[in-house]
């Protein structure tokens, strides 16, 4: 549990905004991810939460080396993954895999389940000899709770939850060490969400996987995560263990997010204070100076506009928080930790 399997250092990903067709002029940058650092330990689950457009999916893409970072590093066991190419990159792909958000678009509609899950073996022929591949695919189907007899079916013959299981089986095929889950359950029904999450938990115990689990649903993240990172507008605002974030949040944004989680118990609901944030998320092209949350924060003062609050442990708190005025606040227990 002590070894860092992935280390992210000051990761920055900016997308240029261009104008003009023939003579392209860069008129600005979308600062999708702007200085994110964290580490992932072997066998650990790191939950990443944040609202739409805060850079979660971009973070996943950079972690998967599908996009090159503008600055900063992603280290896999000390190796900078964005500098890898050719054979080294192929070997890395075996270790880090991706489960995508939408099970309806992430499977090629013209491939059978056998071909879909077997594709990793074709791309990395050294993993399994040709003759054993068919059996491996069946094993994987069995592992994720699908009928191995359905190997010749096409994705459209399955339900959303079943398709997501196919996606998970495909990610598992190469026996990776890390799986980046980019909102793997947000497109599914609540009852199916639980099944898929339980499956992910079971697989983690079985294979010692590490997850980077991206979601916008706090309760989903709590169910799975050892540690949780809260993102806002390309930056991490608070990182801590599950208890630290859910029971003792210190950043106003985290507090606002938690207060919005529905409470099933009507008697408790009465006593719950809801923090309503004003306005919208500012444009990532020109984020506010200083603290990015200050435009919507009820605690904002002059210092927030001038100084960028660092993600560090502050007085009266036990985990890093990027707020000049970080302090605990009574949040009604949202629900049972699952």
């Amino acid at each position: 549990m002590t070894e860092n399997i992935i280390e992210v250092r000051d990761l920055v990903k900016h997308y240029p905004v261009t104008r003009g067709v023939v003579f392209k002029k860069t008129i600005g940058h979308v600062k999708a991810v702007d200085g994110v650092s964290f580490e992932l330990k072997a066998g650990e689950t790191l939950g990443v939460v944040g609202e739409s457009g805060c850079g979660k999916s971009t973070l996943a893409r950079v972690l998967m080396n599908l996009e090159k970072p503008t600055a900063g590093q992603v280290l896999y066991k000390g190796q900078d993954i964005s500098k890898l190419s050719g054979g080294a990159l192929r070997r890395l792909r075996r270790q880090i895999q991706l489960v995508m958000q939408d099970p309806y678009t992430s499977l090629n509609p013209r491939m059978t389940v056998g071909d879909l899950i077997g594709e990793p073996f074709e791309i990395h022929p050294e993993v399994a000899p040709k003759r054993s591949r068919r059996d491996k695919v069946k094993e994987l189907l069995d592992l994720v709770g699908l009928n191995p007899e359905h190997i010749n079916r096409y994705p459209h013959q399955f339900s959303g939850g079943q398709r997501q299981r196919i996606g998970i089986a495909r990610a598992l095929a190469l026996r990776p060490e890390v799986i980046v889950c980019d909102e793997p359950v947000s497109a599914l029904d609540v009852s199916i969400q639980a099944q898929v999450m339980n499956l992910l938990e079971k697989l983690q115990a079985e294979f010692g996987l590490s997850y980077v689990f991206i979601a916008h649903d706090l309760s989903v993240v709590r169910h799975l995560s050892d540690r949780v990172a809260v993102m806002y507008l390309g930056k991490m605002v608070e990182v801590g263990t599950e208890d630290e974030i859910y029971e003792r949040p210190t950043h106003p944004y985290t507090q606002a997010l938690l207060s919005a989680v529905p409470v099933p118990d009507p008697t408790v609901r009465e006593s719950k204070a809801i923090i309503r944030l004003q306005g919208d998320v500012p444009s990532p092209v020109s984020p506010p100076s200083g603290c990015r949350f200050r435009t919507r924060c009820w605690k904002a003062q002059d210092v927030c506009a001038q100084e960028v609050p660092l993600l560090q442990i502050r007085r009266g708190s036990d985990h890093p928080s990027a707020c000049h005025f970080a302090e605990k606040r009574e949040i009604v227990a949202t629900h049972e930790a699952a």
Binding site: M64, L66, L89, R90, R93, R94, Q97, L98, M100, T105, S106, L107, N108, E119, P120, I123, H124, G167, R170, L174
Partner: peptide, 9 residues
């Protein structure tokens, strides 16, 4: 699914 294929290498 093209992104997924690229992620597989």
């Amino acid at each position: 699914y093209i992104v997924a294929a690229r992620a597989l290498g």
